[in-house]
Simulated assay, not measured.
Amino acid sequence: MKRIILFLSLTATLVAITPLMSPRVASAASFDCTKTDLAADEKEICAERSLNDLDVKMVTTFDLLVGLVPMGNRDILREGQVNWLKTRQACGGDQACLRQSYEARLKELDEAYRTLIKPL
Rank of each mutant, 00 (worst) to 15 (best):
D41C: 04
L65P: 05
P19M: 13
A28S: 12
D55S: 06
M58D: 14
A12P: 02
L98V: 05
V15Q: 06
W84V: 11
S50A: 10
D53W: 03
P70N: 00
C46D: 09
K43M: 04
T13R: 04
T18F: 07
Y113E: 14
L77R: 08
G92I: 02
K2P: 11
F7D: 04
P70V: 03
Q89K: 14
N52E: 15
N83I: 08
K35T: 00
P19K: 12
L116R: 09
V25E: 14
E42Y: 01
L14A: 15
L120Y: 03
E111W: 11
A28P: 05
A104L: 07
K57G: 06
M1S: 13
E103G: 03
G80E: 12
K2Q: 14
D94Q: 10
A39P: 03
D32A: 10
N83M: 06
A39D: 04
D75Q: 11
K57F: 01
Y102P: 06
G67D: 11
S9P: 00
R78Y: 07
D110N: 13
L116Y: 10
S30I: 09
S27I: 09
Q100P: 04
R24L: 15
T11F: 13
M58F: 05
D63E: 14
K2A: 13
A29Y: 12
K2L: 13
D94I: 00
L54H: 10
V56N: 10
L85R: 12
Q81Y: 00
R74M: 15
L120F: 02
S22C: 11
E111C: 00
V69E: 07
A104I: 09
K57W: 03
S50L: 09
D41P: 06
D94H: 06
R49I: 08
E79L: 13
F7Y: 07
L54Q: 12
N52I: 01
L64T: 14
L64E: 15
R3T: 14
Y113C: 12
F62N: 05
C33D: 04
T87S: 02
G67K: 07
E42M: 00
G92C: 03
A90P: 08
T11E: 08
M71G: 12
M71W: 12
S22F: 11
K107L: 14
L68A: 15
T87F: 07
T13S: 13
A39N: 03
D94K: 06
L116P: 03
G67M: 06
M58R: 14
T60W: 02
L98K: 04
K57Y: 09
D53R: 06
I4D: 04
L65S: 01
L65E: 07
L109T: 08
P119I: 11
K118F: 07
A39C: 01
T87H: 01
Q95V: 08
M21D: 10
L65R: 09
F7H: 01
R49H: 09
F62Q: 09
V59N: 15
K57H: 08
